[in-house]
Design a protein around this nucleic acid. Structure first.
Length: 344
DNA sequence: CATCAGGGCCCTG
DNA sequence: CAGGGCCCTGAT
């Protein structure tokens, strides 16, 4: 299946078609790596987030997940498979690379996967808290062991956040696809094709009008400045991980194009701050109103206060469970009010 | 056809 | 601290 077909919609019509399509680079070296996440563990809930829009940098089937990843200057392909059993869950990782991987790099990949997917966290306190939640206990039980996981680097999620701004999902997908086709790296592994996010330096020589030709609009300036700042090391993802939430927030807000909603996304998904329920966008407000109050529209401040009061340091994580659950259900049952709000 | 707001953010007054 | 403007698109 072609990459653009996988997205299930017409995309990329305006993008790299003007330029010759580059052949995918084959990542033919393989190494295996096993990780044993703290039980309980929910593989599909962790590695697939149905509320996220599809990207050509990854793919999922039940029990399997593929993604590209950049570590240091290496571009890698990962195939991640479900293994083990309930009492001892296992994650089987195949690492694909252009040049052979040495064992220290393999250990870096392990560490990175554990951090990005919270594999060393058994969420015990969270389970205790949610088990006595009268309304949503069934949801928390259904997804028990699901982590707040992300396949994205800080830079990639910054770019995604920028294409999300003031656009409908369809257009966001178009923009990201166009950018990946033009500037991303095309690779092949496990008989599949993917794109990888370009290095931020790649944007240095790119003109704003060249970006605008990909119909990203005023976001061209954001993409340029964000890339320059990231390439210059204005913020360091690895360093930020160890800092307290307020400092991370302050640092991220220095980036041009990062405001309250983007910083919330980054704090939760990239930096795993489970309490980062710090902003509610208007479209989320409508969905939360339905989910939590069965009402059309509740004041955002009220929603935030209620959720924070009930789930405390796990406020954002709890919302994540309920949010992803409704998007999973959407596949099998028609939920009219939801369709109305998300407008693909 | 025209108008409008969208999975925000920056900048101005 | 509120509100206008921003690119482009599909909905009305």
């Amino acid at each position: 299946m072609k990459l653009s077909e996988r997205l299930g919609m017409r995309v990329g019509l305006n993008s790299a078609r003007m330029y010759p399509m580059v052949k995918p680079r084959e990542l033919k070296h393989k190494k295996r790596l096993n990780i044993y996440p703290a039980p309980p563990f929910h593989f599909d809930g962790t590695f697939h987030k149905p509320s996220h829009f599809p990207a050509t940098t990854e793919d999922w089937e039940p029990g399997k997940f593929w993604q590209t990843i950049r570590l240091g200057n290496k571009l890698l392909g990962l195939k991640i498979e479900k293994g083990g059993f309930a009492a001892k869950p296992q994650i089987r990782v195949t690492v694909y690379s252009g040049k052979p991987i040495v064992s220290t790099e393999l250990e870096n990949i392990r560490r990175e996967l554990i951090y990005r997917n919270e594999l060393d966290n058994d969420l015990k306190q969270f389970r205790v808290l949610t088990a006595r939640d009268k309304r949503f206990a069934p949801i928390f039980r259904r997804w028990q062991g699901m982590r707040n996981a992300t396949s994205d680097s800080l830079y990639k999620l910054l770019i995604i956040s920028v294409v999300l701004q003031n656009a409908t999902v369809r257009r966001s997908v178009q923009m990201l696809t166009a950018l990946l086709e033009r500037y991303g790296d095309r690779v092949q592994f496990d008989k599949r094709e993917f794109y990888a996010i370009w290095l931020p330096e790649r944007m240095a020589g790119v003109g704003e009008d060249e970006l605008r030709a990909l119909k990203v609009g005023y976001r061209a300036k954001f993409i340029k400045r964000l890339s320059a700042d990231m390439a210059a090391g204005l913020v360091d993802e690895q360093k930020l991980r160890g800092l307290d939430t307020d400092t991370i927030k302050k640092e991220l807000l220095r980036l041009y194009g990062v405001g309250p909603e983007t910083v919330r996304i980054l704090l939760f998904e990239v930096f795993h701050r489970s309490d980062a329920f710090i902003h509610i966008a208007p479209w989320q407000q409508k969905i939360y109103s339905r989910l939590f109050y069965k009402k059309k529209l509740m004041p955002a401040a009220r929603i935030q206060r209620d959720i924070q009061k009930q789930y405390g340091q796990y406020a954002m994580l709890a919302v994540h469970y309920i949010w992803e659950d409704i998007f999973w259900r959407r596949r099998h049952e028609h939920i009219p009010w939801l369709e109305e709000e998300i407008r693909l």
